[in-house]
Amino acid sequence: MDHLTRLENKSIYIIREAYYQFKDIAMLWSVGKDSTTLLWLCRKAFFGHIPFPIIHIDTSYKFPEMYQFRDARAKEWHLNLLIGRNEEKLKEGMGPGSGSKLDCCNELKTNALKMVIKKYHLKAILLGIRRDEHGIRAKERYFSPRDSQFKWDYENQPAELWDQYQSTVEEEEHFRIHPILHFTEFDIWNYVKREGLPVVPLYFSKNGKRFRSIGCLPCCSPIDSEAQTIDEIVEEIRISKTSERSGRAQDKENIYTMQKLRALGYM
């Protein structure tokens, strides 16, 4: 079996196991390449008909290309798409330009997701995060419980030995399931290529720049790149050394540092 097929099999196994354990499950789709890959895998796992809803957390600050892509795929793939927005904060004018980016992220992403989970009584969420994405994610597990306060209790994670994933959950908690945790950025692009998967055109070079990672328009910056096709992106990543998220204005590490400092009363 080749490398990509092995990765794919493992993901599909986890997706099916998750659905078997949790009927109140949904998938979080950011419209980026990773969660679109996850969406593709979910379609494969259930032969084209995903039996659970797909959530898109809409901060209202996404790129127009992302909204276009989202709506086209939702139609084409018959997705049960749920849009999560923190309307209250959006009405108050919350945005990356008004105050701290950390608060903006927290309200428009984290709290918006909290609201969706509560509204639909979800017990588990499938997410397209990868282990190689960022240092802090290296500790993530395939099945990762969160308590009602949304905190990731990483001191109390069930052990994952071999393939015996612990997938039962206590009341008031929800599980985060990461079926593509074992993919690297390089694997993702190779997989996109092999499957002929559509991706948001922002990933391809325009005027010498392309986005390596996409999120909200005001907080993303493109990298210098001439890669205009998937083949060229694969080649670029093969030789590139900088981390994929380095282009993000809201550099994750700074955000975490800020969170740590704030939790102790600084800033």
């Binding site: 960022h134 590490e253 540092t257 740590k260 400092l261």
Partner: peptide, 9 residues
């Protein structure tokens, strides 16, 4: 120690 974010680094 504090404020270390990424254990590898």
């Amino acid at each position: 120690g504090f404020v270390a974010i990424d254990l590898k680094k």
